[in-house]
Design a protein around this nucleic acid. Structure first.
Lengths: 398, 398
DNA sequence: ACGATTAAGTCCAATGTATGTACTAAACAG
DNA sequence: CTGTTTAGTACATACATTGGACTTAATCGT
């Protein structure tokens, strides 16, 4: 083990307090310097100095003075600057590419997505298409006077030693970071790559159904099933960054064999492919989206096979989630991906199972919700991580 | 959400660097000031000042100079002071009470335990017995010139709003912290209460089978089955401090009903009571220990019922652990409690199941080991948490 | 054996951040 | 208009780390 701690010197102290003040502004804007001093525990003098620095970085700007507040001199509140500084989120998925620009106030400034089949082509083609999308977005950002200060890319795969394995894209040990650094336009600075389930979890936590949850579990259900685990606002990545493989939890020891080598994995029971097959929805073009729509139509029509298939998926998810809930004790569980759209049929049986299994011993059971951002959670989460990066270390953008 | 961050002022900086230097000494003792400066990134001047402070706190002391090292002036190495400062760990369990004193070098200075049936008596009686044990230990510590600077107590239960629920002790909403603060001798300062599985996990991580693991899972198997989850050296407590209820993971959806309300919980298959019952070991006096010994004897004799019962337990544990491993991706899994003694029969089937289920996709599978501290892991862990408290904030002991 | 060299530890002025007090500015209450 | 209250600013002060000069103590080369 190396020494994990770093020395604290004068500059470190300043950085930390700068981030503290910026965080205070972010959470309480518009806010006066005096109130910030109370909130942060720093003195008025210090806060004023830090705010001046932040204004120089164009991260905060003066808001309209609030008149008629109370007795003394009215404060001159400051807020996060909605204008110049923003983060770029990108996403590669099996069926589409997406981009999204969030400014410091977490407002979506720009967004764009392209439907295309990324599973059927070479990594460099996909990366080139993403780069084209990114160029369009960065050009639009430039026109709008927005300065992008960081980029995060969501991929449906796991990074192992700088190489990405993404089965649904057909990627094996692809040096994604290097490819992206070459292909993306120069305005896309500080590129970071992360798992789509992880970033989706954060997107849903910050902007969607997970808002306000202290600890929560996000279930990203597509063909495979992944989970994003958030604890105290931070992602739990596990020992090797591969936590959250909920898809291969055993839900039925006597169930069907899985490509992972086990038997009765959740994916074989509640993965989208498995559900569609069990419901008897025909293969069609091979694209999932229309098949999912067809499944939803049949569910609305109370088709017996469809209902039975979704019910079985619900039972499987319930077993897996009871295990996960007992192990992790989250506040909130959010169903994302395709499973968000099946939520009306999935949530009741799962809630019942969680209430029965172990919840009784612990007092409270987690709230179960469907994703509210739909397909957008991962891009939003990606752009959001850039913002938290800025909030944590404001000087890094200079 | 409140503002989680605190302001950093000059004193904070000093505290952090003091802890940094102390940590450097702890990990590299004996070590010279010059080497510490390299390790910490601080200057020689600062390190020297901090070391002087630490000597004043009696936390470090000069070691023997190493002669014949290299060219220039030989350094005057310092080490953690083995003498004065130490932490006290206490444990209440169904069948015994235990105490243990660790000095800063993590050496066991004193230890003592008492067998007694704590499940069959009132909380205040158990606390009084623990206090008597603690008094003996603190007296011995005083005689040996040891100053105790903190206390941690391991209980087989969960703390909910300052009240402890411990089914195996028959405790329901017992205000344990308050009782202990009253009953324990004055030398037992800064009393903290934590779950036995959590502290056992830390004990095993620091001093036992988990040493060197970055992320790991500790399974505390007695009548119930709990888990301690450690990630980057820190306990994962979950949303409400009740993470790790592995005992109620569903391992067989068609299995027997459990007192938690669910069906097919791990505890019903692999809990000690369940195994003993399945193996046909008679109830005897009701105490577990002799029954476990009897079970081990039968296993050695290749008794058919015993082997079958333990094998079933292994299969159940395998299902639960495959789930936990997929979700958490730990380096190492340690079997503790009674299950450590059954490990020779349990580990092979579990390892096979983990290798099959999901491990294939991820490349590496965690190492599976039996606890090496046996019944002592929780007390050791308790005393150890006191030490880490000191290392993290050396000034707090003054 | 003696000086040159190398490295550890200490002394002290310099740097830079937060603090505290005093001061100015701007609103409201009477 | 005057007194009161609160926001923000100016400036001297306190204090932890820094960096360079200095002292101390060992080995190496001759």
């Amino acid at each position: 083990m190396t020494d994990p701690l770093r020395p604290t010197h004068l500059g470190t102290m300043r950085e930390r307090n700068l981030a503290l003040v910026l965080g205070g502004i972010a959470r309480h804007q518009p806010v006066t310097r005096a109130r910030l001093a109370e909130l942060t525990g720093l003195t008025k003098t210090t806060v004023a100095a830090q705010v001046t620095t932040l204004e120089g970085l164009r991260l905060v700007s003066g808001a309209l003075p609030v008149r008629g507040g109370g007795r003394g001199r009215p404060g001159a509140p400051v807020s996060l600057a909605p204008g110049p500084v923003a983060g770029l989120g990108l996403e590669v998925n099996g069926h589409y590419l997406a981009a999204c620009v969030l400014d410091l106030t977490h407002a979506v400034r720009l967004r764009e997505s392209v439907a295309c089949d990324n599973g059927g082509r070479e990594p460099h083609e996909t990366v080139a298409a993403l780069a084209a999308l990114a160029r369009r977005i960065t050009d639009r950002a430039g026109d709008a006077g927005i300065t992008l200060v960081g980029t995060a890319v969501a991929l449906p795969g796991v990074t192992v030693e700088d190489h990405v394995n993404a089965p649904n894209l057909g990627w094996e040990a692809v040096p994604a970071s290097a490819l992206l650094a070459d292909a993306l336009p120069a305005q896309a600075l500080g590129i970071e790559v992360d798992n789509e389930a992880n970033l989706g979890a954060l997107g849903e936590l910050w902007y969607g159904a997970g808002r306000g949850a202290g600890s929560y579990l996000y279930l990203s259900g597509e063909i495979g099933i992944g989970a994003g685990i958030v604890f105290d606002g931070e992602l739990f990545r596990g020992g090797h960054g591969a936590a959250g493989e909920l898809g291969h939890v055993v839900v039925d020891p006597d169930g069907p064999a899985c490509r992972c080598g086990g038997t009765g994995c959740l994916e074989q029971v509640a993965g989208l492919d498995a559900v569609l097959r069990a419901a008897g929805v025909p293969d069609g073009t091979g694209r999932c989206e229309p098949r999912l729509t067809e499944l939803l139509r049949r569910l609305d029509d109370r088709d017996h096979h469809a209902l039975e298939a979704v019910d079985a998926a619900g039972r499987g998810l319930a077993v897996a989630l009871v295990g996960a809930v007992n192990l992790l004790d989250p506040d909130t569980v959010v169903l994302g991906g395709s499973h968000a759209r099946l939520a009306p049929w999935l949530i009741p049986p799962i809630e019942k199972a969680i209430a029965l299994g172990g919840g009784k011993l612990r007092g409270r059971t987690p709230v179960l919700r469907a994703s509210t951002l739909g397909a957008e959670s991962a891009v939003r989460g990606a752009a959001g991580t850039v913002l938290t990066r800025i909030l944590a270390d404001p000087l890094a953008i200079a």
